[in-house]
């Protein structure tokens, strides 16, 4: 899809339709992030609360059942860290 800022009015779909569903995927919100969650696996009970509460959703369950963030979409909001039942998630500032 053409970048928005290059699209002319003639190229606009009828009624501003978006014919491809899930087009928000193209919008990588990961670059909003100033911090990111880090899991301490020894304290993680794999309950999935972090996965449930992530608003994006940008938490992926790995094959072993543990969780990690999706760097393309995690905005670094910290809800997962606040809601984690064992306190195994820490928010770490992004490196400069």
């Amino acid at each position: 899809m053409k970048p928005l800022e290059q699209t002319t009015w003639q190229e606009i779909e009828l009624g501003g339709l978006l014919r491809e569903p899930g087009s928000a995927r193209a919008y990588k919100t990961g670059d909003w992030r100033s911090q990111h969650p880090v899991w301490t696996k020894s304290r993680c009970i794999r309950c999935g609360v972090c996965w449930t509460v992530c608003p994006e959703p940008a938490i992926i369950q790995e094959p072993g059942g543990y969780f990690d963030m999706d760097p393309d979409y995690c905005k670094g909001c910290g809800i997962c860290a606040r809601e984690c039942v064992t306190g195994c998630i820490t928010m770490v500032p992004e490196e400069e």
């Binding site: 699209t7 009015w9 606009i12 978006l18």
Partner: peptide
């Protein structure tokens, strides 16, 4: 498909022109 998507300032004008 999506009907009624929001429009950023970069595209609102073009939609109105159409």
């Amino acid at each position: 498909m999506t009907m009624g998507a929001f429009a950023m300032p970069e595209i609102y004008l073009e939609v109105k022109m159409k």
